[in-house]
Amino acid sequence: MPFVEDTAVSPEKLPQFVKRFDEIVRAHGTEAGYYGHASVGCLHIRPLINLKESEGVSKMVSISDEISDLVLEYGGSLSGEHGDGLVRSPYNEKMFGSQIYDAFRDVKRAFDPDGIMNPGKIVDSPPMTNSLRISPQYKPIEIETAFAYKEEGSFAHAIEMCNGQGACRKVLGGTMCPSYMVTRDEEHSTRGRANALRGAMSGALPHESLTSERMMAVMDLCLECKGCKAECPSNVDMAKLKYEFMDKYKKKNGYSLRDRLMGDVAFFNKLASPLAPLTNLPLKSAIGKEILERYAGIDKRRELPMLASQTFRQWFRASGGSPASDAKHGTVVLFPDTFTNYNHPSWGLRR
């Protein structure tokens, strides 16, 4: 858990500091993950804690108290490069002393006299146990799922893999999260979606919100690019979670015309292909595009794939088999997909 994961001491003190840190963790009957920036004395050490049990919550507080003492002993910082937030702000008076802490309070009140900007951060903080995302009261509902979740354990556990770090809110590089990069709205980040799903599963939101229109608005802009699975430190797979959500949402709310057109595109292409290029006319006419935008939600500015008068499979049969039947390097099996077969058969002919 990331509650004492940002300690920093002088690099020359780091070996002994880590040894003492590890002794504290092991004295509480657990272990920790270690990574960070040893060259500058900053380590991100995360003890393994089960906050679903009261014992785990007590263990977190006890470890925090002892680690803060250790950091003071070594003349270090409890927040080396990350923020204090709600989890470390309660220790600021202890770390900085009453005089500096009062100065922090005066500065914050000067700029925020009504206490509306990040209340409880840095000064006047509630106990670190007040706003736990996972706690002994956290009881997610059990639902029947489409996926097995053999690695994660369950749908709820797959959601809980999000630890709230917020790496999905980056905007200067990488893939995760494209929808957040555009909207800059928390609900369109991987973390925002995970929190919404977690709320519905745990009862923080009404359970029926799991299949609500509001949840659909949160999940809809997920592009299922799996950037989060690759770039999130916890490897949250929001695409998989969205698939599960969509299964539940559609079963409750039904399928739209757009869903059926997209889901059965192979069937509709098969029906329309024999009449191509006649059937292409509504796909490229202004009236046809207006109708598709109004009733199927397909933007009229989009160029739609045209149907070929001869499908790839028809060409293949007419040609008498593989054009490389005399190849001497073994057999190649080609599986033409829907779009290669009906829309772009030339793609399957390229060598």
Rank of each mutant, 00 (worst) to 15 (best):
E31T: 11
T7C: 14
G41L: 02
K59R: 14
N50L: 11
G85C: 03
I45P: 01
G29I: 07
G85P: 07
L43W: 02
P47S: 08
V87W: 14
S89C: 07
S54H: 12
E12V: 12
G29H: 05
A27W: 03
K19D: 10
E12H: 09
S39F: 11
K19G: 06
T7I: 11
R26K: 15
V18N: 03
V40D: 11
P47Q: 06
V87K: 13
A8N: 01
E73G: 05
D6L: 05
F21V: 04
S62K: 13
I63L: 10
V61G: 11
E23N: 08
V87Y: 08
V25T: 09
P11H: 06
L78H: 00
S54D: 15
V40A: 00
Y74F: 15
L78N: 00
G41V: 00
V18S: 04
L43S: 02
G56E: 05
A32I: 04
L51P: 09
S79G: 13
G56C: 08
M60A: 15
H44W: 08
I49Q: 02
A27G: 13
R46E: 07
A38H: 09
S68R: 07
G76A: 10
S62H: 12
G75H: 06
P15W: 05
L78C: 09
A8W: 02
V71H: 01
C42G: 10
Y74I: 02
L43P: 00
G56W: 06
I24A: 01
V18F: 05
P15K: 06
Y35K: 09
T30N: 02
D65H: 14
H44G: 04
Y34W: 08
G83D: 12
V9G: 04
R88E: 02
G76M: 05
A38Y: 03
S68E: 14
L51F: 13
Y34M: 02
V87H: 09
G80Q: 03
V40N: 12
N50G: 09
S62L: 12
V87N: 06
E55G: 15
D6I: 06
S79M: 07
K59G: 05
S64A: 15
K13Q: 10
C42A: 12
S58G: 15
V18M: 13
D84M: 15
E66T: 07
V87S: 12
K59C: 10
P47A: 10
C42H: 13
I49D: 00
S39E: 14
K52G: 15
L86W: 13
L48K: 11
H82R: 11
G36C: 06
K19S: 13
Y74Q: 04
L48E: 12
